[in-house]
């Protein structure tokens, strides 16, 4: 009897956790020229939790390395800087966009064509991981795709 109660309680806790956990949505990758050394990826990260969530690492089995970068255009000058740790405020979200935050995807062996999908894993603090399928497409000023969403898995 006690075992069943404990299991039910654990189940309820898991559900509550899943409903309010960090989410990565609308992940996509800009199609690039053949043999281009680096591709740009985008996503929206939602943090409905009451604590700041930090992206510590991003990776893909298809890429050598993924970094988070931020481009800025100020006074007609373009700058691009690496962001080593991206905090997402409690109850907030960060939207990656061209000329803003982007994933800098180095060393993709076979450059993917529009329509293909690449698995991308986001690692947050607290050993939380979210894997999404990022769809490759050509940006034509269209709104973000709704595909490529993912939710946090329980920490191992």
């Amino acid at each position: 009897m006690r075992v069943i109660a404990a299991a039910a309680l654990a189940g309820a806790l898991t559900l509550a956790h899943a409903a309010g956990s960090v989410r990565v949505a609308e992940a996509w990758i800009e199609e690039g020229p053949p043999d281009v050394p680096v591709l740009a990826g985008y996503a929206t990260i939602h943090n409905p939790t009451a604590q700041t969530a930090r992206v510590l690492n991003v990776s893909s089995p298809r890429a050598e390395r993924i970094e988070i970068h931020r481009s800025e255009i100020t006074e007609n000058t373009v700058t691009m800087t690496r962001v080593d740790e991206l905090p997402i405020p409690p109850g907030g979200e960060i939207r990656f966009t061209p000329a803003g935050y982007h994933l800098m995807i180095y060393g993709v062996a076979q450059p993917p064509a529009a329509g293909e999908k690449l698995p991308v894993e986001f690692e947050f603090d607290g050993a939380r991981k979210v894997t999404v399928e990022a769809i490759v497409r050509r940006s034509e000023g269209s709104a973000g795709a709704v595909e490529g969403s993912g939710q946090v898995e329980d920490a191992p």
């Binding site: 680096v38 740009a40 691009m80 940006s139």
Partner: peptide, 10 residues
């Protein structure tokens, strides 16, 4: 430059 995947392709 070609190592610029964000603003340059745009």
């Amino acid at each position: 430059f070609t190592h610029c995947p964000d603003i340059c392709p745009n």
